[in-house]
Amino acid sequence: MAAVNTAFSRELSKFGAFDFNACYNCGNCTAVCSLSNETDSFPREMIRFSVLGLEDDIKGSLKPWLCYYCGECTTHCPQQAEPGELMMSLRRWLTSVYDWTGLSGLLYRSLTATVAAMTAVALGVLAYAFHEDLHLEKIMHTGHLFEMVAIAAVFSVILLPNLVRMWYFIILKPGLRIPVKKYITSLADLFIHMFTQKRTLGCDDSQVRWFEHLVLVFGYLGLLFTTVFLDWFSSDSAFVITLGYVVSIIIFTVTIIFVGERIARKREMNSKSQPSDWMFVVWLFLMGISAFAVRLFSDLGILESNTWLYLTHLIILAQWALVIVPFGKWTHFLYRSFAMYFDKLKKS
């Protein structure tokens, strides 16, 4: 027996969902979705749960993560109930549910809070820089240290607990019992999905999107690896330097394409972007291009006289690492992969 919670649809609208109440449950969205199948039929069920406000059912479902938003459902929805956007909003909402700090939800719901958080981080970086009298070398050194510490801290303090919470909602709370061995044997799926998003290939739209995405993921991970572990900015190895240039170029070209598409609203999924979507892709672009510029200036020997450039890069980096990665859209990357992992576990 379930009770209806009409407040939920108002709550969900703060995460970007709209018009999904118009759904008259014809199931067309499910039928046109190429990822939907007999065992996992969506998005209609999710729309229905959202309309009725059956929060627990949504929390316990992986279906929002099984959708890769090709937009077919929205294009063909006879009631123009925006099923694709609802699924996107559910992912945002779930992110806020998984996040124990509650900051995700706050940032998604409030643009002001997001701007404030980003400003605070920027001011923090600037304050530190002035504290060090704008001493480039010192700042760069701390910057590199920050990167390593931030990754470790964000992951262990925020993301890991959040993944555990996700596991709790999906596996533990519904009372599923899964042998440990299964957790290990299924790990391969986790990584495959994390790095390749191969499920997108099943989508109806062109496979270019999947390829762009794949390139971006490798570019991003490459940049992370080069800057953090190979210390690109300070490295003398020609290989490392070239690698860094390549991956940063990849990042900003692909993101430029993405931004362009978002502006042109070419795809259904792009037509209703939320600030969090913009922020993710814009900051990724800025990261790529600023990192590229820092190394270029350094190679040209003019970085010394352009401290502001590294400061800009560091601000972007800090905002990325402290806001977007733990609380923003970046988490989708993680949750989606784990969703596939949990899905594999559930079906075993």
Partner: peptide
């Protein structure tokens, strides 16, 4: 009022 709502997979839903 309770109903086994076919649009929610036959789930029993109650409204007061």
């Amino acid at each position: 009022v309770s109903i086994n709502d076919i649009m929610t997979g036959g789930r029993e839903i109650t409204v007061e």
